[in-house]
């Protein structure tokens, strides 16, 4: 037996479950190493360097990080990003849950509706949608015209540092499709008996929602919340295309700040440091959400 094991033929080796698994996963593993792991390691290294594209990197220790926390533009970008996440993420989740609940009402056209509502997410991150929103909320767009018709002369979303983020948040909320689908599948898994039992006990729709739907859905809410938090922190396209961070840095989110430092001013080391700070903040926020989740997430199989 022992001898036979050592002399595995190539054919046998190739047919092992593990080998097959790795071969099939190879495209991802290679991609992950080449496009994520190596760039990550490099960016960690560069974050301690003064590095201009095209010039050799020079080790400067923690100077980039110290500089970042003295940079009022960076601190402001952290502030507006957090503001965006705090307003944008709950809005999107509520919206997604609402639509998901409407769509789980069994109708014949359910599949069609779902597909239609999912389309914005497919095209959502694209430049084209950002351009459409730019027109829609722009100074000559229908929305501003309607607001002006109601008497607000000179009003313009993107011209005001208080209002500029609103269209961006709405654009994000509009791309609720993937969260909606996840919610919808979660809703389907809630046993019907719960609702029937509640009805017999005389619970109304609101009570059913609060005491059955929300607790049963809490693992899914946690998942969606985490995904949206992460994507919220990484918001880039809309800000870059629609407002370019303006006015008065009101929509200069961290990713846009990093992009500008890295690509507009060729300050790669500094940009890398900023993205690591961002990573740490995101990890911390995600960690906190995980920690608190024990108190509000309900798992059925827990006893």
């Amino acid at each position: 037996m022992e001898k036979q094991k050592r002399k595995t033929t190539l054919k046998e080796f190739m047919n092992r479950d593990n080998t097959v698994g790795y071969v099939f996963a190879a495209p991802f593993i290679i991609g992950f190493c080449a496009l994520t792991l190596v760039p990550m390691a490099l960016s960690l290294f560069y974050s301690f360097c003064s590095y201009q594209v095209g010039k050799p990197a020079e080790w400067i220790g923690l100077s980039n990080f110290i500089g970042l926390f003295r940079d009022s533009t960076f601190l402001n970008s952290l502030k507006v990003t957090i503001q965006y996440v705090i307003i944008g993420v709950p809005l999107k989740l509520v919206f997604a849950l609402l639509i998901a609940m409407l769509l789980t009402k069994p109708t014949k056209a359910q599949g069609l509706y779902r597909a239609i509502y999912y389309i914005p997410s497919l095209i959502g991150g694209s430049v084209a949608v950002a351009l459409v929103w730019k027109q829609l909320f722009g100074s000559r767009g229908p929305i501003v015209k309607a607001i002006k018709a109601m008497g607000a002369t000179g009003f313009n979303f993107f011209g005001s540092d208080t209002w500029a983020f609103v269209p961006l948040v709405l654009c994000n909320a509009w791309q609720f499709g993937s969260s909606m689908l996840i919610f919808a599948s979660g809703l389907k898994q809630i046993p019907k008996d719960y609702y029937e039992a509640a009805s017999i006990d005389g619970a109304g729709a609101w009570k059913k929602f609060c005491y059955i739907t929300l607790p049963s859905l809490s693992p899914i809410i946690l998942f969606n919340l985490l995904m949206q938090l992460i994507s919220g922190f990484m918001t880039f396209t809309q800000a870059q295309i629609i407002t370019q961070g303006g006015p008065n840095h009101a929509t200069e989110y961290v990713s846009l700040y990093i992009f500008n430092q890295g690509f507009a001013y060729a300050r790669m080391g500094y940009a890398c440091a900023a993205s690591w700070v961002m990573l740490i903040i995101m990890a911390a926020v995600t960690g906190v959400v995980f920690k608190t989740s024990k108190t509000w997430v309900f798992y059925e199989n827990e006893d």
């Binding site: 760039p39 960016s43 890398c272 993205s275």
Partner: peptide, 11 residues
Amino acid sequence: MKLKKVMALTM
């Protein structure tokens, strides 16, 4: 890091 990855991919 996700950020960088996504940015790199977008680029």
